[in-house]
Design a protein around this nucleic acid. Sequence first.
DNA 1: CGTAATCCGGGACAATTGTCCTTTTTTGAA
DNA 2: TTCAAAAAAGGACAATTGTCCCGGATTACG
Lengths: 186, 186
Amino acid sequence: MFRTNESFYSFIEDLYNQPALRDQISLKVYDKGDFLLQQGDTLARVLIIREGIAKCYSTEDNGKDFIRQFMGKGQQVGDLEVIKGIKCMNNVQAITPLTAFAVAVPYFRHLYSTNLKFSSILMEELADRLIITDTKATLQQLYTLEHSLRKLLELMEIQQLTISKEDMASYLGISVRSLNRILKTL
Amino acid sequence: MFRTNESFYSFIEDLYNQPALRDQISLKVYDKGDFLLQQGDTLARVLIIREGIAKCYSTEDNGKDFIRQFMGKGQQVGDLEVIKGIKCMNNVQAITPLTAFAVAVPYFRHLYSTNLKFSSILMEELADRLIITDTKATLQQLYTLEHSLRKLLELMEIQQLTISKEDMASYLGISVRSLNRILKTL
DNA sequence: CGTAATCCGGGACAATTGTCCTTTTTTGAA
DNA sequence: TTCAAAAAAGGACAATTGTCCCGGATTACG
């Protein structure tokens, strides 16, 4: 469900607490519903969530949304884009009040290309994300919706997370009508 | 369709050509149909494809296969598993005759944790793979099969790649029956 | 060249899912 | 508390996809 990364969080928090780095790392505050980033944006800063939860999704040509993941403490927004030097691919929107550390792009680049600890944390994070992404795709391609939905509800229960039915449907890549139907059958 | 990574290939080839590193990097040869790796294996070496094409897929509890990607020159097999320290998650099987560089795991670890050039190539590769994976998942969740199939056929045409209908179906996450049906309608 | 075994395509039916629209529930203001 | 507006739920139908299975084509081998 929503992912966190404590190592990343600690690392960035330490940096934030160093007065010398205050122009490289700032703190941003968002209300529920605010966008941290939108498709097509050029990145000025990489954000690392300090507190709160956001949804990361893309809006396709056909008007449908697909939620890739829910992001929690220590998750980064925009890292891929900086590594690849491209514009923002997804919308990232707060679904709770949220605060985030904002790291200037050149400094972020400096970190992962010179700091081995940082680059190893980043590499692990990318690897994790790949595994999760693959797992999710497989789950949704090869199993029944009922199966996927049960998994999702379990995770929401464990993480004490409440999300709207619309978001649940977008996460599963189905219509709200189908979601309701399956919920009925347990 | 199938991916390649020239930077990775060159980097590894250079190492392979250094006599001092011959016990760290060897060359392996596979026939069509041979497994480079199977789900559950413990990794002894990370493989980098030198020539040929392999399919990377997982077999699920329900007996279905899901092909994640087709891998060509310069693609690595087992990198994620080494980074995360886990057992092999996918089956990787040659679909053409294939040769690969085999890098000892400790040396691979040494490379990405001490060599900045290598770790930056690796990081770019992971980022690319994430983007591709996300794109594929979105395509298959939000668009019609006909749309996905057209894309697949285009890529096969461009890359001059022929794959079996069974593999095409596994790649798209559908049954061969459905694939045939859509092929009929163009 | 003939026969059996295997493979592949497609018909028929059932199950699943989306779209559209009506009904029910919830919300908010007077 | 009441009623209108908005949101959520669900019925009906159509489209899509999977499962099962049959029949024609291909292959292998005597």
